[in-house]
Design a protein around this nucleic acid. Structure first.
Lengths: 188, 188
DNA sequence: TTGACAACTTACTAACCAGTAAGTAAAATA
DNA sequence: TATTTTACTTACTGGTTAGTAAGTTGTCAA
């Protein structure tokens, strides 16, 4: 039986990571928010590196669970893309959070190596799913674009990542304008 | 007569900002690298907020100087776009740096308010120039895209920003693939 | 030559950081 | 019932952080 505390720590750490970045939150933040002591966090996650890796690992597991579930798997390519966009729109709606990859990659040069590897795996998995979905849509005659689907996927993923960040400075409309433009580019 | 030190501080602070982020470097880093004492930095920039704002202000001035100079102003839309892409390619080539907007926006919720305002102004200026250039190219029949040029500009800018970050995890090829895809999307 | 000012250094502080060692109370297990 | 294990707390450490106050040195203008 796993504790509530461990999950609460992961939840809060994920939220803080997307809000302030890996170097932007501390064990003290988490502890005071949860009403426990500093050392309680260290009991569940000995180092901050462990905590960071656990957050990304859980996120990766969650994503794989989603895309392998019929609720997503059985959608049309267009619906799949809309579902994917909605993940990012939800992040924006949730206190203006950025995406996990964007947060970690921006601090890439000041995070532990194991966390960098987790980030690389996460990004590859997102990119791979998105490329497959784009390819599936193009073959079905729903999407229209030139070049390799992997490159178009990288373009879209990088843009969603950047758009969540830009929206912090320019507002939510900017993010939605980018998403709308992607749809227009793909569907015309 | 301004000192060498002040400029050296700004140069190093800008480099560190694009490498490790605003929360990822300290006055001690700059001081030891320059062979001066901590307090010397505080003499030129009383607070870290002042230093951050000065870095962005100088970057903004530099960009306006460039785009208003004949060397850029007299280029064709396609050459202007290539010039703009080359700024980001240079950042990638320079130790895998990210762009200034991306660095600051990712840490937006843990930087001083005045630095947020600088970030907003910078992003608006980049976006505005890019939108004009895209519009100019479309009217000249060189670029092809649907929708408002402002939205396409936001898509491209956000993507360049995200691609520099992604390239840290996936490598330089990813960045160049994204740039190539943008060109293909615009020029077909 | 004197005085002012620019460009620092020395020496410090209070706050915060991740991380640890030792102890405790309750629950699960044998 | 006795023992072990889980989930913590208390109390601490050494390192780093931005920031400050007071002193020093060299240059330049009157």
């Amino acid at each position: 039986m796993t504790t509530n505390t461990k999950r609460a720590i992961l939840d809060l750490a994920e939220s803080l990571l997307l809000d302030k970045g890996f170097n932007g939150f501390s064990y003290a933040h988490i502890a005071s928010e949860l009403g426990v002591k500093n050392a309680a966090i260290h009991y569940h996650f000995p180092s901050k590196e462990d905590l960071g890796c656990a957050v990304v690992q859980r996120y990766r597991d969650r994503f794989q669970l989603w895309v392998n579930n019929a609720r997503v798997k059985d959608l049309s390519p267009q619906e799949k893309l809309d579902w994917f966009f909605s993940i990012y729109a939800s992040l924006r709606a949730d206190q203006g959070k950025v995406c996990l990859g964007g947060s970690l990659e921006t601090e890439f040069n000041s995070i532990p190596v194991s966390l960098r590897q987790q980030t690389e795996s996460l990004t590859n998995e997102l990119l791979s799913w998105l490329a497959s979905t784009l390819e599936e849509g193009r073959e079905a005659g729903i999407f229209q674009f030139n070049g390799e689907s992997g490159n178009k996927a990288a373009l879209i993923l990088s843009s969603l990542q950047g758009a969540l960040q830009m929206a912090r400075a320019l507002g939510t409309e900017t993010f939605h304008a980018v998403v709308a433009q992607h749809k227009q580019d793909l569907l015309v």
